[in-house]
Nucleic acid binder design. Structure first.
Lengths: 244, 244
DNA sequence: CGGCTAATTGACATGTATCAATTAGGGTGG
DNA sequence: CCACCCTAATTGATACATGTCAATTAGCCG
């Protein structure tokens, strides 16, 4: 146990030195407990913080002028998020918890130490940023070029893949903490239409509802109609600097 | 003159040290000239390179199973692109020139030196990655939650803002190197519908065509209907490490 | 003067949104 | 344990935005 959720995540890619672990722990020395639905940051508010999520789920979203919402990304335990604070003084997105959550905020000034003293960690931060960028481009293609059914399938597949990455015990069943309205806001659809697509996916034998859970009955099939590419599998870390 | 297009870009945010300039120049010591329409990388090909664009335009895109294309981003002079190579061994997107172009490829191993010896440059790389991530989230909201007309307006506004950032002489007229098919592939629309939306924008007095150029007649109005947020204006660099 | 690609236009098809009920489910207080 | 309430899910009818198909025109290059 490193005492840092984020360190554990990174340690899955490369074994960390003690010094690196300590540097990451400093990012998490200020944990805060939040109830479900708590607002962490609102778009355009001044914000110099970034966050590591230790327990629970969160999400980031934008609200447009007409009041509609675009959910940008779901955040799971071990994720670092709110990272646009590194570039901007005002929040570029709103952040809210989707469940009871433990959150570790840290000031972006803390990044200076990481970049100054731990080049390998800095490189990992950059690599993660690139991986998230790719995840966003995949979603862009999903929204721009695939059908409603495919978009919903892509969201569900991505949730399964990411949650399983965090917990190897997960095989085909995940908690579905999203309302259909939220699924719609993530996929650019209406709640009503999401409902129809979920039913269609169920009728196709691809998924099944069970209490608040979702059972993926045909992962391959779901991924296929979603046009889903699993890119989490392997990062290429060949260029990393030496650890310090 | 630094001899590095990318260094000039970064120097607009912070004055660079000689040592930093030299490090950036090394990324560009292998320029290559390409004709219009040249493929730089194809999705899924092995690729350990990243690129700095010195002259001309390029773009990145994905092709889906059904053959449809999603254009992810346009790249202009001074842009670094193909950066997902930092995280993956295979290209996550295809790259192609949109005009005669001068390109400077560098192996991702070169990043190691930057992160090891130039923490401030590394931090700038991270900041730029975050800014591009935000740009993608804005586009996600555009595709997910706005009308066809708004999406086209957003693309045109973004092009104007970015090109003007590169060249202060640009006031309201930009070359439109995109076919309507390409505009459609960028905005998730059909070429036919793009044509109608362009006409609508023209009828609204927002834009005008002139040879191969586009004249933005009402930038405010175009940005308003596009739901456009200009985030290029100011980065917050307060946390940057000391230069080396 | 072809010959090619891109732009334009019209008629029509379809996917998704909208509107309006109704039903189901999950807490809470009595 | 039941009655109630509130939110989410579900369903049907209809409207509308965008896609599709097909044809024509414009523009450019050799």
């Amino acid at each position: 146990m490193t005492g840092s959720c984020f360190a554990e995540r990174l340690a899955r890619y490369v074994p960390l030195t003690d010094s690196e672990k300590r540097a990451l722990e400093r990012l998490e020395n200020n944990p805060r407990d939040l109830p479900r639905g708590a607002t962490i940051t609102r778009e355009n508010d001044n914000c110099d913080e970034m966050y590591v999520l230790r327990h629970g789920w969160a999400m980031s979203y934008l609200i447009l002028d007409d009041g509609s919402r675009q959910i940008l990304r779901l955040h799971f335990p071990g994720d670092m998020f709110g990272t646009s604070s590194a570039a901007f003084g005002e929040a570029t997105e709103s952040l809210v918890t989707m469940s009871h959550a433990t959150l570790c905020p840290f000031d972006k000034q803390a990044l200076r130490v990481v970049f100054d003293e731990h080049p390998r960690l800095a490189a990992l931060f950059f690599i993660i940023a690139q991986a998230e960028r790719v995840s966003l481009t995949d979603r862009l293609a999903s929204l721009g070029r695939t059908s409603a059914k495919a978009r919903v399938a892509a969201l569900l597949t991505d949730m399964l893949v990411r949650l399983r990455f965090l917990n190897k015990d997960i095989s085909d069943t995940i908690p579905l903490k999203l309302t259909q309205e939220e699924i719609g806001d993530a996929t650019g659809l209406t709640a009503v239409h999401v409902n129809r697509m979920m039913r269609a996916l169920a009728e196709d034998g691809l998924v099944m509802r069970n209490n608040g859970n979702l059972v993926i009955r045909d992962e391959q099939g779901l991924a296929r109609i979603a046009n889903y590419v699993n890119r989490y599998a392997e990062l290429d870390l060949g260029w990393l600097p030496a650890p310090r």
